[in-house]
Amino acid sequence: MSNINGKVYAMNVITPMKPWKTGLLRILFFALWHIKPMQKDLINLSFIEFARWVIVPRRSFPFLAQGQVPEDLQYDYLLFFSNFNGTWNQYIDAFSSVLSRGLNLIWRWSEKFPGSVPITPFKEYIAQVQFDTDYYYTAYPYAAANDLKAAHIVQSSLDQLAAQAQTSTPQQFAEAYLQFVVRVQTHLGNTGEAPVVS
């Protein structure tokens, strides 16, 4: 029962939208999806494992069985789901300082969204519309997204070196080894426990 599992934080945010605004958001999502540079800033925030926005229309809510009384919902909903490394504050600080324009475009259709700058009303808003995580599985709680990416680079570089080594002379191996070290030198951080949150 926690939003945190090791180095990873799971955030669920659900906000209501007036249905006539949903179409506008769909157009925006279409543009974001097809214009890759618009996603660049989000992707470049290296501590975000992923972030996903999903529109849940008011007539598409799960209807589980005949016995369930149909609801008459007035709003469509925007579900935001993200896994990230670091603290809640750090995450929202970063969002507010480098992604404010993009965030405002996505969330401005939601009710009572105050804008992502200034940061205090934005944090208060997120805190109010965030739903805590009931169950959270993480395959590598002691690894951040950066650690996983780094491990892949080290592994593939090592595999390549090993394959090459089968046929190299000592001189060739020395050169290949230096190339290998230069390739992995910024990817050698170790995994471990996350810093204490509070």
């Binding site: 180095k7 290296s46 050698l188 951080g189």
Partner: peptide, 9 residues
């Protein structure tokens, strides 16, 4: 800690 600098722990 080192994650911001991509240095793990």
């Amino acid at each position: 800690y080192g994650n911001d600098a991509r240095l793990g722990n």
